[in-house]
Design a protein around this nucleic acid. Structure first.
Lengths: 184, 184
DNA sequence: AGAACTGATTTTGCTTTGAAAGCAGTTGCG
DNA sequence: CGCAACTGCTTTCAAAGCAAAATCAGTTCT
């Protein structure tokens, strides 16, 4: 019987090394896992079909496989949707919510060094500008949403703010594309 | 001829999406690339054969392939070793050095949620405790080492400090294994 | 001369990936 | 009721990626 750590990670226990960076890479060192977490965090997605509609077009078998792995690792939990007998609701665990700062750093890094688009990186920009204070607020909101922890909801949520900024960029770019063209 | 951006990233330009997190994952969303960077940053490794002796046992074809990709992306540069006509010296670019904070966060996250070993996570612990100030110092040392930027060397380097802490844990654990046993 | 070392490449299986189609059960609607 | 749409998920199968072992040609050491 393994020692009862606070956060028990049930894993296959055949690892290449016990280095924290290596172990982290074994968890999301692939092209999809972190994107699923991203969509849950920033997109507020909770259902299979929602996650299927990702920017990058994940296919259903891959999504099913990754969800299964993430459940086993303990990054997600799953429960029935009371409104629909076949619907499942996926929730982030603290382990996954703790990735928010990493997401912010990753986004900032990608924004600086890779060919991102403006609309898809506005969120990363706001996360970077908001810094640890914003991240912590976001994490608290996620805890409320996924872990049932109550929170004082003062004003719009971080996700709503990010989403609004995203849509504003979309709208502005659409307008720029048709400079002085009414109607249509 | 493409626009002359400050950081020109020569890539194949067929991406799944222009989201910064996705693009970051396309760069090191695999099991090896970041480990190579890790060994260069924390292990001070610069040669093919040194990198071949990783904790995790990378095989030479994978290492050669990843080095090639990292060169193409612009995370590394390569030059001849004057002391040996066939030796190559790999250097980190600013793009790779900028990953230090991400490494620190990844290490901290792995240390908290995954079954790491004490000796291999002591570095992550010190990086976490040192915070952004230590990271910045470390990055400056890496810039000196890899980009030829001069620096004022006051005391032992961050890498030496981390390495010493690692060896101290190793030594302590060895002693604990033979409590009152002299010789041998 | 010969052994050891250099950064790779080749060879050869195996695993993973992922698009498309399909599945059984559930729900909403007329 | 009857049927289409929807639910999470599985199957199929070809292609791509991954990785251990052996090998390579040139270089340096002894």
């Amino acid at each position: 019987m393994p020692s009862a750590l606070g956060t028990e990670t049930r894993m296959t226990d055949d690892h290449r090394s016990a280095c924290p960076i290596n172990l982290s890479l074994e968890v999301f060192g692939d092209k999809w896992s972190l994107l699923i977490i991203r969509d849950m965090i920033f997109g507020g997605k909770r259902h299979f079909r929602e996650l299927l509609r990702s920017q990058e077009g994940i296919s259903s078998n891959i999504l099913a496989d990754r969800l299964k792995t993430l459940l086993e690792i303990g990054m997600l939990t799953k429960r029935d949707d009371p409104s629909h007998k076949q619907k499942a609701i996926y929730s982030l665990t603290e382990m996954a919510i703790a990735l928010v700062p990493i997401m912010a750093h990753l986004g900032a890094w990608g924004r600086r060094y890779l060919p991102v688009s403006e609309e898809l990186s506005i969120r990363a920009q706001l996360m970077e500008e908001g810094g640890p204070v914003l991240w912590e607020r976001f994490m608290n909101e996620l805890r409320a949403e996924h872990l049932g922890v109550s929170r004082e909801s003062d004003g719009p949520s971080v996700r709503q703010t990010l989403q609004a900024a995203y849509e504003e960029v979309i709208a502005r770019k659409a307008k720029e594309r048709e400079p002085a063209n009414a109607g249509s």
